[in-house]
Nucleic acid binder design. Sequence first.
DNA 1: AAGAATACTACATACTCATGCACTATTTGT
DNA 2: ACAAATAGTGCATGAGTATGTAGTATTCTT
Lengths: 216, 216
Amino acid sequence: MQKSDYITVGIIEDDVAYMKQVRTAVDATTAIRCTIGQPSIEDFFESLKPYQDLDILLLDIHLPGESGINGLLRIKKRLPNTAVIMHTVEENDTLLFKAFLRGAEGYLVKENDMDELIKNLHIIANGGGAISPIMARALIGYFHPNTPSAPKKLEGLGTKDTQILHMLSEGWTYKYIAKKLDITVDGVRYYIRKIYKRLGAHSRHEATKIYRRLSD
Amino acid sequence: MQKSDYITVGIIEDDVAYMKQVRTAVDATTAIRCTIGQPSIEDFFESLKPYQDLDILLLDIHLPGESGINGLLRIKKRLPNTAVIMHTVEENDTLLFKAFLRGAEGYLVKENDMDELIKNLHIIANGGGAISPIMARALIGYFHPNTPSAPKKLEGLGTKDTQILHMLSEGWTYKYIAKKLDITVDGVRYYIRKIYKRLGAHSRHEATKIYRRLSD
DNA sequence: AAGAATACTACATACTCATGCACTATTTGT
DNA sequence: ACAAATAGTGCATGAGTATGTAGTATTCTT
């Protein structure tokens, strides 16, 4: 994933003091370089050179102008190989799920422990995922049985139903879903029947449309 | 969540050397006590006293007798307030999902860095989630839109191709499309073959995703 | 303690879809 | 005028999907 000798990271952050703190910490390392730092998404795109690329982008959520969460899609389109870490003070699981559904690779809550941040940059650069503890718990909680969680379980659908609906809408085959969840193909059928009945759908396509409409 | 002055942790692990390593590390801390350590689920239940409780349980997956993943339900039933961390050498995302669907609070890959493990125990005790970096990435990846690789432009597709692609992505059947365009179903097939080839798709779903991505 | 609901597994059937091969009519380039 | 691409039709096969019916083990209700 690395294109140069360094891990290149960019940062979009309107708190200039905090940005400076991060840049100083990054510059103190030997393996990571901060090649771009801007206070807004608009400024970021403006300053990004035609073929410029990044390994990692630290993206604040609360920004003047376009928010980080909204800019994420645009950023991912321009920099498909850049791992984006959402970086915010907010421990908000709606934002957390939204970020991942839009392609983020990490969600870190801002803190002043720069060593921890640097460690997470290395983790990301090595193909790992970066999540702050509390957010990790929220993420895990999403899979827990009968726990209402952020990507709203549509009324009357349980954790597993919702999970299967999600995979279904991503286009996976029954066989693949069965293997992932370690149940039989007939087991998958069982859930899909249930989901279709609940949604009033009669095909993968209808179900997908309904799911997407209800979950953005 | 803590019931005593200490964080109490149990461990079920058949690798005695590894268990010893963990116990030693835990005993070296001031805040955590290892109150139970057994080499199998059966032994664990046998040695568990009537009202004994735990804050955290480190649960190996590969065990003689009942596997950790299967025992998890039984354990959660007996110890509903205990946070269970699956603890294994296997970086396997089927197991990962299964563990969380069954109520685990963490999934850590075994390593010899005991400081890291202790840190994770504290995280769990403070209501956080513990996941090893690679597993975190797998978990995050579950939410990612799975983007098929595709050409950057819809070039090379004629008016009729595009029209059919559009109808295809709206979910219409070949029969319906054939009737609408007044050609045979095989005619529709002919175009769809062409479209798939051009897009590098192999199913309606892939084609739809590519189409949507390229036309917004 | 009996019955109902839940969470599957299993088998069956018909339809849809992806793809390969063969054939033809029309258009287009040289 | 001839080759070759384009735009289909036709048939075949296997995989994937939707839906019905039935059975079992476990959990929840009363």
